[in-house]
């Protein structure tokens, strides 16, 4: 498909540091090739801001191929933009039209403090994993990899959950800023596999408690997370988390 050139108006959340009050500022992005990714469009805007002696827009990104989970903003009210199963770095400008106005805001949730502009602190996600998102095995002690056969369907189901990239879009999109999809994905991944079963109870108990401690909201089964997750993680993983939690608490 041949590239077109479009002009856009951006309204971007600008906040020079965590403790300073921010606001939406308007910029124009002109002569944008529709072959660019959303982040490349921001690169172009930033290059111009620098040339004009202005402060470029800070945004997180790294792999730019949809796997590291570093990028992410709410674009026109949608986490990672309006294309489904897509991270912001994989959203391309051909999905916008000439003359569009695009509002870009950071992930919003109590545990996600703004660091600068669109950059937020997501260390709470690491803390959630620290609360139990692992299998306690030291290097050196493992049996042969084929010692325990695992049904292909089980491995596939575990993979579906393990595909989470930890971007936080589920939390940003959730009306309650709940982290249930993220935690559900990890608990499901590990509790489905025989290797993860011994610690299943402890994991579910601790991770669920950690969510509250960190200030995430509660799930009200609105499924906005599932609709925005770039990796298509299903709310069935949340149901599985609920199940694991019930098993852990009531037995």
């Amino acid at each position: 498909m041949s590239a077109k050139r479009i002009n856009l108006t951006l309204k971007v959340w600008r906040q020079s540091a965590g403790e300073i009050i921010g606001s939406l500022k308007t910029y124009s992005a002109s002569d944008i090739s529709t072959d660019m990714s959303f982040l490349e469009m921001l690169d172009v805007v930033n290059e111009n801001l620098i040339k004009n002696g202005e402060d470029p827009i800070a945004f997180d990104h790294d792999c730019r191929e949809g796997i590291c989970g570093m990028c992410g903003s709410v674009v026109n009210g949608r986490a990672h933009g309006h294309e489904s199963n897509t991270t912001l770095c994989q959203l391309h400008m051909r999905h916008f039209s000439d003359g569009d106005t695009i509002v870009i805001e950071p992930w919003r949730a109590k545990p996600f403090k703004v660091i600068k502009d669109l950059v937020v602190d997501r260390s709470a996600l690491d803390e959630l994993i620290q609360a139990g998102g692992f299998i306690s095995v030291n290097a050196g002690g493992a049996p042969d990899a084929n010692a325990i056969p695992i049904a292909r369907e089980t491995a596939e189901a575990a993979f579906n959950a393990a595909a989470c990239i930890g971007c936080g879009a589920c939390i940003a999109a959730c009306p309650n800023a709940s982290a249930m999809l993220f935690v559900g994905a990890k608990v499901s991944h590990l509790s489905l596999l025989p290797q993860g079963k011994p610690e299943a109870k402890k994991r579910a108990r601790q991770m669920v408690r950690k969510m509250k401690e960190l200030g995430f909201g509660n799930c009200s089964n609105e499924a906005e997370c599932e609709a925005e997750c770039p990796k298509g993680i299903s709310i069935r993983e949340i149901a599985r988390l609920n199940r694991e939690f019930i098993k852990a608490e009531f037995s």
């Binding site: 949608r78 805001e105 949730a109 909201g217 009200s220 609105e222 499924a223 906005e224 609709a227």
Partner: peptide, 24 residues
């Protein structure tokens, strides 16, 4: 609790397709 979990809201927020009028 859910209100407290997002002290600063969005200027623009759209439904992604999960939410229904009932759920909201």
């Amino acid at each position: 609790e859910n209100r407290r979990a997002r002290p600063v809201g969005y200027a623009v927020k759209k439904n992604a397709g999960g939410r229904t009028f009932g759920s909201a």
